[in-house]
Computed example of a mutant assay.
Amino acid sequence: MVDLNGRVAVVTGGETGIGLAIARTLAMSGAQTVIGGIIEDKGNEAAETIRTAGCEAVFVKTDVSIEEQVESLVRAAVDRYGKLDIMVNNAGVYDGFADCLETSPALWDRVIEINLRGVYLGTRAALKRMVPQRSGRIINTSSVGGLRGSADGCSYTASKWGVIGLTKQVACTHSQYGITVNAICPGVIQTSLRETSAINLGDVAPDMNRGVGDSPDAFKVVVPAKRRGSPQEVAEVAAFLASDAASYVSGQAIAIDGAWTAF
């Protein structure tokens, strides 16, 4: 486990799945952690579980597509703990493999608002605090869908490619300030993303069950590891990127995918 004692972290989408694993791992590594998310009961439960383990965490309800709420989230971290060292822009929704013709403009807009605009807003809010202190770690959650055009649906794929582009551009312009900016790209991970996406997308949500019932092991054809990854395996990479050990790693899109992108 890395040493993050004295660090302050914000994790969006930290109430479930990969985000929860990242928030828990950062907190267990010593970081004072603020979880931002839209599912309030899950967020409060996540923070309480972390505190019960003897670590520091609070939850702030946040819709990452709304600038004022993202600013309020980051401000809450700074007001409570005095600074911001680590920003994990993890909040995201899935589009159920909907192709271009199946993707309504409303679905497109909402996925882009959360998955890409949310990362931009979180990055911008973090930079406002990190540039003056000349240090910081920004970690953005993309996907294998941001590296492969055939992995996911239309809006999800576009959003995750956008996250990698944003990550690389900000790394080029802000690494000079002692800030690293990287993207993690999970592959097939065991989470409840389909269920939480249906909740967050509401009326514009497509069928989230495509590819589940008929061939639950179809991913094994393209994943050499022949298994799903765990949220914790993704969280460990994020924790490394948040640490001093990764001080010269910036502008990278790191696949955590059981060799899928090597196949």
Rank of each mutant, 00 (worst) to 15 (best):
V2Y: 06
D3C: 05
G6T: 04
G6V: 04
R7N: 12
R7Y: 11
V8I: 15
V8P: 01
G13L: 04
E15T: 13
G17H: 10
G19L: 10
S29P: 02
V34F: 02
I38P: 00
I38T: 00
I39V: 14
I39C: 00
E40F: 00
G43Q: 05
E48G: 00
T52F: 01
C55Q: 14
F59R: 10
V60L: 14
S65Q: 12
I66M: 07
Q69C: 09
V70D: 03
S72P: 00
D79G: 09
G82A: 08
V88M: 06
V88A: 12
N89P: 09
N89I: 09
A91W: 11
V93W: 07
L101G: 11
E102M: 12
T103H: 07
P105M: 10
R110N: 08
I112Q: 14
N115V: 10
V119A: 15
V119S: 13
K128E: 14
R129Y: 15
I138E: 03
I139L: 13
T141S: 14
T141C: 14
S142F: 04
S142T: 08
L147A: 03
S155K: 00
S159Q: 07
V163Y: 06
T167K: 03
V170H: 01
Y177I: 00
V181S: 11
I184A: 09
A198N: 13
V204T: 05
A205M: 08
P206F: 06
P206D: 07
M208H: 11
M208E: 06
G211A: 11
G213S: 14
D217G: 00
V222Y: 01
V223E: 00
V223G: 00
P224T: 13
A225Y: 11
K226A: 06
Q232E: 15
Q232P: 00
E233C: 13
V234S: 09
A245E: 14
A245Y: 13
Y248S: 09
Q252P: 00
A253W: 03
A253G: 11
A255W: 01
D257L: 11
G258S: 08
G258L: 02
